[in-house]
Design a binder for these strands. Structure first.
Lengths: 338, 338
DNA sequence: CTTGCGGTTGGTAACGTTACCAACCAGGGG
DNA sequence: CCCCTGGTTGGTAACGTTACCAACCGCAAG
């Protein structure tokens, strides 16, 4: 009838009385057993096994100065394999340091991010790792976080000077665009995100720089910067290829736009729609790119490594080995030609 | 110099003295403010804002019977988008119930799973959701878990009778294989996992049933059941296609094997290797399957929904609305023809 | 034989919070 | 006028754990 089933978790007192010792002896045994007689240690461990006792970590961390062993991680979209890998990297390094991660998904919603951060702090996390949304950053200011260190990943937040791990978005987009220009293309379309999205802005800048440097004209009518999902990207690619003067190549600033563009190109091939079969450069890797019906150059990077770097930065902060001022790590990207 | 920077988290006492009330009044205000004078509530809220106070959830949940608000989730491989989506589904439902998830990655390692479960229980999780590894299950027995409910996902554990969410592996594999037989294929290869992997075994059973039912011979020399990653799958596909009597179609039991097989098929096309271009049925969806050089039928399913169902089962248990005996939910799969 | 020391053990208090109970207040009915 | 009621407030204790201190032991040195 009641909600609780069976026995609740045994406490250290129950273990102690079963082993015929004091709670302190149990505590000391579980802490490594220094200055506890071996026979008592054995009796304690036997009682622990028999009762199925686990230390209550929440009670342990109640004592101030004691770390909770939890790292709060908030990412924007777990369904994106990129962030799945990122979370994995964070989890790995956290586990190496004996910590667990509490994970929340913001879905690009600033309100949800705010909630998550509050909750994480309420749970006494030792640190925070965040892929920030583009909303305001008031809730991330140091005075709001108390002494909980924060690391940003993938994106920076204006007016917030904290440790950050980024990709070399500008350089990658620059080099990717150059590879198209080197192949003789001059009319190159752009598919990407709004400039309010940090990476969207940076990747556009790389594209722009390469185009300008080589004297290739930038035509706003073949630049689409507001697609967040595959369907929108498909539509944008369609419009671009239906342009009276269509591009001969397309730079796609992220995975979603690449998939959308390829869907549209595939459709045209199947349906026999005339017009160019544009070459593609994709920021973000995807599987089987080598089997695509048009050549796809991939700007690849390691999301898992990005997660590992973020966690490494955080633990440097926690262990006091970090520089006084905020550090930014910018991870290189690689270009893979078809 | 020291590790701790700045002020530590303020306590309820500090809020109370700043607002000029007792800690109890603060506690009551934060709990909704029943029977607290509105002007005092305002003073309390002002003090909360000024100090940047967050309730210590660990201390709150110390009181027995109080839920911690945490759900422990252990999955085998976060880098796999399938499990990323699964975790997302769990996270969504948990958030709807005001809970957070602690996430751990087992990497198919039973020892790591054991560690994670211990740690989760030590952190007083309200429930556990697990994609179990194939190791032994002693640490998952009810007496070891105390009163913490457990839900298994994707796989069952022998000798453990708990709530479980599965895919219709057998039915999906059966129908997928049938679609190849319907298309006239009789010599169909199989790429999959060892039978010790729960889904590997079930999907093979579906394949086997369809073949037997239609009187198609099952030839062990075109059955490869030991590939865990893309490279191994590629090699297995290569051997299969180099067979003196190669299959005209291949059933692939999971995403990794599908990608591997397609890599090999693509290589043969590029290099002009003679031989069949086998049709493919893939258990697990992947993006751009419609652009592949051979027709690919996809057995699709919704990992996010699987996560949602697992969490729903868990909360039914937690809220006492579940059946007395363990429930199994088997989610349907859909077949998408090229 | 006493002293002192190191190893071992247990009692106490405190971490931050809230359930429970007691105290107090004002106002209305007797 | 007193008593009771209901709304409001605060004190106390307890949740499970461990740091700190006190106590005790046996043994070696003086």
């Amino acid at each position: 009838m009641s909600t609780s089933r069976g026995a609740r978790q045994p406490t250290i007192k129950e273990v102690a009385s079963r082993a015929g010792v004091s709670p302190m002896t149990v505590s000391r045994t579980l802490a490594g057993g220094v200055n506890v007689r071996p026979d008592l240690q054995e009796r304690v461990m036997a009682a622990v096994r028999e009762l199925g006792y686990y230390r209550n970590e929440n009670a342990r961390s109640l004592r101030p100065g004691q770390p909770s062993g939890l790292i709060g991680v908030a990412i924007t979209n777990l369904a994106n394999p990129y962030y799945g890998n990122f979370a994995l990297g964070v989890e790995e390094v956290a586990a190496e340091h004996g910590r667990r991660i509490i994970l929340g998904n913001t879905g690009e919603d600033a309100g949800r991010e705010r909630q998550l951060v509050s909750d994480f702090i309420g749970r006494q996390v030792d640190g925070l790792i965040l892929v920030p949304t583009s909303g305001d950053a008031e809730h991330l200011q140091p005075e709001r976080l108390g002494d909980v260190p924060l690391v940003l990943a993938s994106r920076r937040v204006p007016g917030l000077d904290v440790d950050t791990v980024l990709l070399d978005d500008v350089g990658g987009a620059y080099r990717g665009t150059l590879s198209l220009l080197d192949a003789g293309h001059t009319r190159i379309g752009f598919l990407g995100n709004r400039s309010s999205v940090f990476t969207g802005e940076r990747r556009y800048r790389g594209y722009e720089r390469a185009m300008t440097e080589r004297g290739a004209p930038i035509d706003p009518s073949i630049i689409a910067r507001d697609q967040q999902d595959v369907d929108a990207a498909s539509r944008a690619a369609r419009a671009m290829l239906d342009h009276p003067e269509p591009p001969t190549a397309i730079f796609s600033a992220n995975n979603r736009n690449t998939i959308g563009a390829l869907r549209e190109i595939g459709r045209r091939l199947r349906d026999g729609v005339p017009g160019p079969r544009p070459a593609l450069v994709s920021f973000d890797d995807f599987e089987l790119s080598e089997l695509m019906p048009v050549p796809v150059t991939v700007i690849d990077h390691d999301a898992r490594l990005l997660g590992r770097e973020a966690a490494t930065l955080l633990f440097a902060r926690l262990e006091g080995t970090a520089e006084a001022e905020a550090t930014t790590v910018e991870l290189p990207v690689t270009i893979e030609h078809p």
